[in-house]
């Protein structure tokens, strides 16, 4: 029984991290994905802040899932999510004011990040607390990984560095458009094509093995 629980915990976690990756498969939470990913550090911090809110809100909504009446569930979810967002916002203002200034309104906008809403509605409202935490962790880290990857690519071409470390040779002239809106859209589009191609290749390999 305990083993079964553990394995389902892991499978739910992996589902969020890879199979149903919120960015590349579910296409949720696009605004922060594109808005803050000009430097790798911003990507990581935004991802972790979102993960925190996601895990907490999943846990609470899952605990309250039998108490909240169906009719007012959306306002109820919003209040739960908004409370955690306010907590992390105040925390960052107190301890990480510089980072908070860079991420700006996007921190407050975690409230309307559709990943959190979608997971509350489609997972936490129907599943026990432990699994909901696993789902929150998986989805949150999946989101973190993909936006970190995106921001690394953008920082590499847009500033010639990754996490502030210079990668490109001295003579490299940064491609400024990567730090701007068009660069974000186009990089994400190209990465999505790449992910789809890899997925197709992987599933073809799997079928080959089965056959």
């Amino acid at each position: 029984m305990a083993d079964q629980k553990k394995s389902s915990f892991i499978s739910v976690f992996l589902n969020g991290l890879i199979t149903e990756n919120p960015t590349f498969t579910l296409m949720l939470g696009m605004c922060p994905t594109l808005g803050v990913t000009t430097a790798a550090m911003n990507g990581v911090s935004m991802g972790l802040a979102t993960t925190f809110v996601l895990v907490c809100s999943n846990l609470f909504i899952s605990l309250l899932r039998n108490i909240i009446p169906d009719k007012v569930r959306i306002p109820a979810y919003i209040v739960v999510i908004a409370s955690f967002v306010t907590m992390i916002d105040l925390f960052m203002q107190a301890f990480l004011p510089e980072l908070r200034a860079v991420l700006g309104t996007y921190i407050q906008l975690i409230v309307v990040n559709c990943i959190i809403f979608a997971r509350a509605e489609s997972f936490a409202a129907k599943n026990p607390p432990l699994l909901s935490i696993a789902d929150g962790l998986g989805m949150g880290l999946g989101f973190t990984c993909s936006i970190t990857l995106l921001s690394m690519v953008r920082e590499l071409f847009g500033s010639g560095s990754i996490f502030g470390l210079r990668i490109m040779p001295e003579g490299y002239l940064p491609m400024a458009i990567m730090n701007q809106v068009p660069g974000g859209f186009i990089t994400l589009g190209l990465m999505m094509i790449l992910v789809n191609v890899i997925k197709k290749y992987a599933s073809a390999r799997k079928e080959e093995k089965l056959a």
Partner: peptide, 10 residues
């Protein structure tokens, strides 16, 4: 336009 926005100086 891409080149212009990226390398405005050049």
């Amino acid at each position: 336009a891409v080149l212009f926005v990226s390398w405005g100086g050049l």
